[in-house]
Amino acid sequence: MNIETLQYFQYIGKYKNITKAAKHFFISQSTLSRHIMSLEEELGVKLFERDNKKIQFTEAGEALYNECELLIRHLQIVINNVQLADKGNTGTLRITSPGKLCKTLSDALILMKEKYPSINLIVESYNFNEIPCAILYGIYNIGFTYDFACSDYDELEIIPVGTDDFSLLIPSKFYKNPSKESIAEIVKSLPLILPTYIEPPFMKLIIHEFQRFAGIKKINTIYVNTTESVVFDVSLGLGYGIVPTSLTKSKNSDENISYINLDDFSAKGTIVMLRKKSNTSEIVNSFVDIIKDLSKKDLKE
């Protein structure tokens, strides 16, 4: 199994069409088909159901497609690490965060550079609900996310490093200067837009309070794929959303969006740092210790 073949498989699944996938890679359909047949033979399963018009995943194909992106990235990391080791450079620390969740991360990076001047630091953005899996797959050594996104991962060490508020996200063209007194009207006039992934445990309590404020039994709710989609839809005036304040404000400066902080609703999430328990390298341990020390200082202050 190699990256090239996995990418071919991924794009056939994306387009549901061998011709379009072949054009994407500028190769012939026969070449693409040979790669897929080789992959099926290697795995001992059938990945696609084919007919004259289109192709569909088998259950095995669906399972591979769902893991394909992480698998490709993991293989790329392994290859890169091997090449770095061959050059005598093994000091690489890979960190991921969905955005500027807390100042602790930037402070820790400065201290890490001072301690290891030649270290290769790689910091990348990732969807916060997918970060636990990315750590388990070894794509990153350290991840920052919210506690409610990683409650069922026994293989991970989960270290609290801060908190984040949640806010109501509202289209400014309907409510130019919204306040908490506006919530009842907003709830009655617009649909609530939420991402489909894991919801914070307090979300039901917030929604219940909104229902009470508005005097309604049920809130009209629309589900979209990501928090970014929530922000986009709200900016278009399609509804209102409930989002992590720090994460969303750090990525968004859209004048079409206004915020109402929901601190009165006990709407807080714990920001956590993740690392795989089995990863006990010196570099990872040093970074974890720096984060722990900074977090203790923040708590005292």
Score class of each variant (00 low, 15 high):
5 T>L: 07
6 L>F: 09
7 Q>R: 13
12 I>P: 01
27 I>F: 00
31 T>P: 08
52 N>C: 13
54 K>L: 04
59 E>C: 02
62 E>V: 05
69 E>N: 13
78 V>C: 12
80 N>M: 11
83 Q>E: 08
90 T>C: 08
90 T>A: 08
92 T>K: 10
94 R>S: 08
98 P>C: 01
102 C>E: 10
103 K>W: 12
103 K>V: 10
107 D>G: 06
120 N>G: 06
129 N>D: 11
129 N>K: 07
132 P>A: 03
133 C>D: 14
137 Y>F: 12
137 Y>V: 04
142 I>K: 02
149 A>C: 15
150 C>D: 00
157 E>L: 09
165 D>A: 13
165 D>G: 15
168 L>Y: 02
169 L>A: 03
175 Y>I: 01
179 S>Q: 11
180 K>F: 05
189 S>W: 01
190 L>V: 01
191 P>T: 06
191 P>C: 05
196 T>I: 11
199 E>S: 14
200 P>I: 01
206 I>H: 05
209 E>H: 14
210 F>W: 02
212 R>W: 06
213 F>W: 10
213 F>R: 15
214 A>F: 05
214 A>N: 03
217 K>N: 14
221 T>E: 02
226 T>Q: 10
236 L>M: 12
246 S>R: 14
250 S>L: 08
252 N>L: 11
252 N>R: 04
258 S>K: 14
262 L>K: 02
263 D>R: 11
266 S>Q: 08
287 F>P: 03
292 K>N: 05
296 K>A: 13
296 K>E: 10
298 D>S: 11
300 K>F: 05
301 E>N: 15
301 E>W: 07
